[in-house]
Amino acid sequence: MTTPTATATAPTKAPGKAATPDPARLRRRRRLTQWGFVAPAVVFMLLFFGYPLVRNVVMSFQHYTPKTFFTGQAPFNGTDNWSAVLQDALFGKALWHTLVFTAGSLLGQFCIGLALAVFFSRRFPLNGVLRSLILLPWLVPMVVSGIVWRRILDQDTGVLNTFLGALGLSGDTPWLTSPDMALLSVILVNIWIGVPFNMVILYGGLQEIPGELYEAASLDGASAWRAFRSVTLPMLKPVITVVLVLGFMSTVKILDLILALTDGGPADATQTLGTLTYQNSFVQLDFGAGAVVGNVLILISAAFAVFYLRANRTDGK
């Protein structure tokens, strides 16, 4: 008599049902995929931004001269470069001019750009044509704009003084040759260049505001000014943050426009941190001092970058 033996049978898969993948393996694969997309940008940033930034910081603590390019020797001199630059009276003037130039440019560009954006948000004949023409100052290279405006603002043969003289007004204003007028003139030219950028970004933000909000405000009896304060400005807040921060970071380091207009003069009246960096590094060939001023510009820009990130994080909550 034989006894039946128990045989182990393997579990059978239900037909049409796939095996459950390992969650840990899926997470690792997803993480590798994410890093695969991010890695090129990280490598690019490290090579073209990270390395120059670190090199500039190191250079600010070195005695770096034209001789270094041949010998490769740049001995460290501690904080001598920093002390020499920060104690120089010209650095204080350049810092103040930078702040005035940046604040004046941003204020003028933003106010005029916002006014034009609101104006062009209404439909009327030739709207698109006029908006396209206003973009021209932004499309022209800044050096070209500087050279053209230098001819326009020339005290003796400039178009502006000639026009003012024909109107019976003062026709010999020293726009670029007077220490009292030069910085104001440079600010006005930079406002002319930057208005189109502000108008385009703010115009795009205005198009995203629902029209129902204005209809509700009108039904509540709100005036045009009240609707602007209570509807337009709050809805534009994220766009305004972007415009001001990007405008600051592009304005604070402007060099070519000032060089084309005044070359930092007269009597250092338009000397900014950007022009001071250029003169220290490429005119006086004191690369260590130039690196110090460049690092100050980087710190200022980094402070506003942090402000930008914090403002966006607050808006996202």
Results as ranks from 00 to 15, higher is better:
Thr3Glu: 15
Pro4Gly: 11
Thr5Lys: 07
Pro15Val: 13
Gly16Thr: 05
Ala19Gly: 12
Arg25Lys: 13
Arg29Tyr: 02
Leu32Phe: 12
Trp35Phe: 13
Phe37Met: 06
Phe37Pro: 01
Ala39His: 08
Pro40Cys: 02
Ala41Gln: 06
Val43Lys: 01
Phe44His: 05
Met45Thr: 15
Leu47Val: 15
Tyr51His: 08
Pro52Val: 05
Phe69Ile: 12
Thr71Arg: 06
Pro75Ala: 02
Asp80Asn: 03
Asn81Gln: 10
Ser83Ala: 15
Ala84Val: 07
Leu86Ile: 09
Leu86Pro: 00
Leu95His: 04
Leu99Gln: 02
Leu106His: 02
Phe124Lys: 02
Phe124Tyr: 10
Gly128Pro: 08
Leu130Gln: 13
Gly146Trp: 05
Val148Thr: 11
Arg150His: 08
Ile152Lys: 03
Gln155Pro: 09
Gln155Val: 08
Gln155Met: 11
Asp156His: 15
Asp156Ser: 14
Asn161Met: 03
Thr162Cys: 07
Phe163Glu: 03
Leu164Trp: 10
Ala166Phe: 11
Leu167His: 03
Pro174Val: 06
Trp175Val: 00
Trp175Asp: 02
Leu176Cys: 06
Thr177Pro: 03
Ser178Trp: 00
Met181Phe: 12
Ala182Phe: 04
Leu183His: 02
Ile187Ala: 09
Leu188Gly: 10
Gly194Ser: 03
Val195Gln: 01
Asn198Glu: 11
Ile201Lys: 05
Gly204Ile: 03
Glu208Ser: 13
Gly211Trp: 09
Leu213Met: 12
Tyr214Leu: 02
Leu219Pro: 00
Leu219His: 06
Gly221Phe: 04
Ala222Cys: 10
Arg229His: 11
Pro238Glu: 11
Pro238Asp: 00
Pro238Lys: 03
Val239Tyr: 00
Thr241Asn: 15
Phe248His: 07
Leu255Asp: 08
Ala260Arg: 02
Pro266Leu: 01
Ala269Val: 01
Thr270Ala: 10
Thr270Asp: 04
Thr272Leu: 03
Phe282Thr: 07
Phe282Tyr: 14
Asp286His: 11
Phe287Gln: 02
Ala289Arg: 10
Ala291Asn: 09
Val292Gln: 03
Val296Phe: 10
Leu299Ser: 07
Leu299Asp: 05
Leu299Trp: 04
Leu299Tyr: 09
Ser301Thr: 15
Ala302Cys: 12
Phe304Ser: 05
Ala305Lys: 00
Val306Gln: 01
Phe307Asp: 00
Tyr308Glu: 12
Ala311Pro: 01
Ala311Trp: 00
Asn312Phe: 09
Arg313Asp: 14
Gly316Tyr: 13
